[in-house]
Design a protein around this nucleic acid. Structure first.
Lengths: 218, 218
DNA sequence: TGTTTAGATGAAGAAAGCTTCAGTTTCGGA
DNA sequence: TCCGAAACTGAAGCTTTCTTCATCTAAACA
């Protein structure tokens, strides 16, 4: 009597021949397509297999269950976003804080909003699978990259860079999420992007002030 | 052949006698309890009814389907948070921007984090029901309150108050959500609360500057 | 060319939970 | 006290989708 299906993540079988690798790829792509097209409630493993041009049996040869399939799809997407972030963070090594903020925010929003539909669809499944774990991991990765970037600036921060990185990250994510979930049209992005940069700039600016309390103005 | 269950929200029957009102209340409370206790995957209408001390039939007398039940529970919770926000916003009418930021953030985090478990549980279902619609509504309500508060300050903002309110709100929500989903323990909240206030203060400060570009420092 | 292994297939078993409804109990007014 | 309406009950029907596995096909290899 095999246990129901606790938290099995690993692929069942590793592709050896070329065609099987193609199957896995097709299945993963199809998963996203089906998700975006008809939503998570009507996504079935059979439908995904159909769309991928394989049979359900084949799907189950590489993914132990539906959950693992969705997890894999989520990982794939978040990985792409994380890599985009890591890249800008590398590129902006040694820049001014202002430049960093602008570059980071622009890259993040671009990566997220370019695939807004996919992001929205993936948000919707992340609570069905153990999504928060995956999201958390990626968040940590991104946080590290941002922290390192911030630390490389010639302008010294008067605060723990990791805390600062978290704030920026959370604010970015919060805004992006709201826009994605409320279906903000692409043409309306620009004001928010600029304002987010403005906010980040003001914050980072304040973080370089000798007095970290920012009590009085002018 | 009745359609599956499109988007029925309204209660089936309005309580007339006292006992039925009590049932509705008990069911709603039980829904949250079950949700927090065993998670959304194992929440069944039967279990909720059991916990509420009524039969499933009774549950279905007031909620047309499971989705409506969960929606009602979500609404209830968000409503409480929105009211907390609206109250501070009223209280801070005419205050300085700094005071507003501190009061708003403190109230918001308190309302959210006091019931962190419930919030987390509700996040997990909001994608199953049409949660984003409800969240959006409450967001709009809160946005209005914050906008009005900001507008009442003697310090004039050099920007659209509603945009500023959105940014603050999104940043707050983003940070709170990350903390809730990552299970940040209560004792670690304080640094984030303070830093969020710091961020908001810096941002609002910058928004009062005549030049809204904030190009050079010191 | 014959054999072995990897890969693919898809009908059907099995589980699970939502929702109904015919029948019973309680309430409140006449 | 009696009666109609409001509430309540919970067993069972119904639907849906996941997952398996016996069988078949294609590829690699000798």
């Amino acid at each position: 009597m095999p246990q129901p299906s606790p938290i099995v993540l690993e692929p069942r079988k590793s592709p050896v021949q070329a065609r099987s690798a193609a199957s896995v790829e097709a299945i993963l792509v199809a998963t996203i397509q089906v998700l975006v097209a008809i939503g998570k409630d009507r996504l079935t493993t059979t439908r995904v297999a159909e769309r991928a041009g394989v049979s359900v049996g084949t799907l189950y040869q590489y993914f132990p269950n539906k959950s693992a399939l969705l997890q894999a799809a989520l990982k794939r997407h978040l990985n792409a976003v994380a890599e985009a972030i890591e890249q800008v963070c590398r590129e902006q090594h040694g820049s001014t804080l202002q430049e960093m903020a602008a570059a980071l925010i622009t890259a993040f929003l671009r990566a997220k909003m370019k695939k807004a539909k996919i992001s929205a669809a993936l948000y919707s499944i992340s609570s069905d699978i153990d999504g928060s774990k995956i999201v958390k991991q990626m968040g940590a990765r991104t946080n590290k990259a941002i922290t390192e970037m911030l630390s490389s600036s010639s302008e010294p921060l008067s605060k723990d860079p990791q805390l600062v990185a978290s704030m920026l990250q959370d604010a970015m994510v919060g805004i992006a999420r709201r826009m994605i979930e409320s279906g903000t049209p692409e043409k309306n992005l620009e004001p928010y992007r600029q304002e987010l940069i403005f906010l980040a700039s003001a914050y980072l600016e304040a973080c370089t002030a000798r007095e970290s309390i920012l009590a009085h103005k002018r």
